[in-house]
Design a protein around this nucleic acid. Sequence first.
DNA 1: CGTTAGCACTCATCGGCGTCGAGTGCTAAC
DNA 2: GTTAGCACTCGACGCCGATGAGTGCTAACG
Lengths: 347, 347
Amino acid sequence: MLTERQRLILTAIVDDYISSAEPVGSRSISKRGDVGYSPATIRNEMADLEELGFLEQPHTSAGRIPSHKGYRYYVDHLVRLDDLSKEEVHRLKSMFAEKITAMEQVVQHTASTLAQLTNYTSIALGPGMFDTTLRHFQLLPLNEDTAVAIIVTNTGHVENKTVAIPPGISTSELDKVVNLLNTKLAGVPLIKLRSQLYKEIGDEMNKYVSHAQEMISLVETVLSGDEAHREVYLSGTTNMLNQPEFKDVDRIKTIWELLEETPALIKVIGAPGGEEQGTGIQVRIGQENTHAAISNCSLITATYSVHGQNLGTIGLLGPTRMEYAKVINLMQQVSQQLAVFMERYHK
Amino acid sequence: MLTERQRLILTAIVDDYISSAEPVGSRSISKRGDVGYSPATIRNEMADLEELGFLEQPHTSAGRIPSHKGYRYYVDHLVRLDDLSKEEVHRLKSMFAEKITAMEQVVQHTASTLAQLTNYTSIALGPGMFDTTLRHFQLLPLNEDTAVAIIVTNTGHVENKTVAIPPGISTSELDKVVNLLNTKLAGVPLIKLRSQLYKEIGDEMNKYVSHAQEMISLVETVLSGDEAHREVYLSGTTNMLNQPEFKDVDRIKTIWELLEETPALIKVIGAPGGEEQGTGIQVRIGQENTHAAISNCSLITATYSVHGQNLGTIGLLGPTRMEYAKVINLMQQVSQQLAVFMERYHK
DNA sequence: CGTTAGCACTCATCGGCGTCGAGTGCTAAC
DNA sequence: GTTAGCACTCGACGCCGATGAGTGCTAACG
């Protein structure tokens, strides 16, 4: 579709613009050395590229900047993934070489390191509970009308919730119920927990426990909402402010409001988008993002999974003028390392 | 120190500036009606007030704005606390009328409501563990080399941490240790937990448990760091961007970096400052704040406590040009309501 | 003697205007 | 096909002068 020369020039323009943030003119491309043509020739090609929709001009007498389509073509066909710097490799390795820690911590730490290495904002979606199972359930009374309920999953995730104890229930009855739950429901996937509740232990409850109905609804309260509950970790949010495209407060504001809104964020980061050559890395450029607030941002995401089961996502958010080569490269590395870690962790 | 008329004029200027964010001139004060003097007279008084350090002039031919000293005097002597609006009262009441929930949730919810009502940024320092005691300790193996440790306090707070199990330790031994800890250390204040560890159970461990040393250091790992660990909840961070004084990106940046840095934030919010007439409300204006990033902000904090024991703090951060009357009023209400809630909660 | 009207003065803001220069598109020559 | 040359466009920048809000001072007023 594009001639070799056009690809060469487009690459040069995108690279230039990524590092300078200013419209790039024919003269500066010509001077770079890697494109051996005069400004005039380059100008002709640039006019063609603009007609084809890969470039645009902020105003008549300015240089060109890549359009979304231009970035997309660049990411899909032109970007060259050079090697990571030693520092980057070191930082990544050391992260996964640490002592055994909770899965969530690793994800969080990874995201924060990515934000530091790239100077963009990282958004990490913590592991979901799709295939996690109940490891342990506990109900600890704090006083006569309150108790704290604790759920531990096989992945080591701990959820807790304070609940009211229905009046007239003794401690021994609570214990009985908790024991019943642990023996009958241990190993059951969290998402099936509520449906299994009646099936497995409804009868026994009615037989052995007074106030059975109250107890069941108590347990239901504890379980409710937890399936959908996902942690979102943000890091490097102030990095955004370093980018010249966000020197305007209004633009920051809409983005920031999105970042504060966890559910919207989950939707944004989870949406499907352009996939980068089957590596699980997705690149969403500008309006390819579902949310208007980041329609002039690019979001690059990597998912982490175990046994083919997608657990969560790590994303990097920056301007469309993003260092795609560096970021995609980093993401690939991280994705691989995370996969190894998860395999080991889940055994 | 100031004449009645000076106080009247200072009040008018501060009020005006708070609502308009622009230097206020003699003419506009005169026109307000509540100060029955001509612009000329007011000009004379303004010159005096400036000489005394209560006002300053951005440039020669502009109006006056309050200096830090001016704000301080206003807050200490002039501010009039009018009644809260019905909506505000309603929001506050409904917050504490909710069902029994975890203390942390109430604090968090309170802070977020304050941010919404005031359009400033709220910073809440979660309850510390000063007088909380150990309610329950648990160690759940996830696989042969990892376990998740859970600590529950008498206030219903749950901490958890994933730890490595020293090789060669059986499940039954773990159980033995956990039981020992629960029977011997339940009710012990968290801050004394580590020191009591050796005293109370060192002997028994050595007697009944193999690998005693490893087990003790395992438990120590679990306990380490938790005493100092405080949750910080932010809310309404984007509200900052609505203030005209923060339309400049650089200023936002330094503030935001502070907000991202939990330990620094704890220090800032916990520092002592000007106290408002013995109500526990503290007002820190401009450079009274310990951190340079917020030297042109005001921070108003209220502490919540139980039995005279200070548990945590809720703060509101805004420009020095803050609606002191409204905010102080709200804070007083919240502080009282929180105290009642905590009393009830702690019983 | 406190208060106020009058007036000259200061200074930030804003729109208009000319200059500058980066970059383009077109044409003609190589 | 490539490139030098050139006229043209247009945003950025700096320099006015006008405008107007606000001041400080002085003199008059009750």
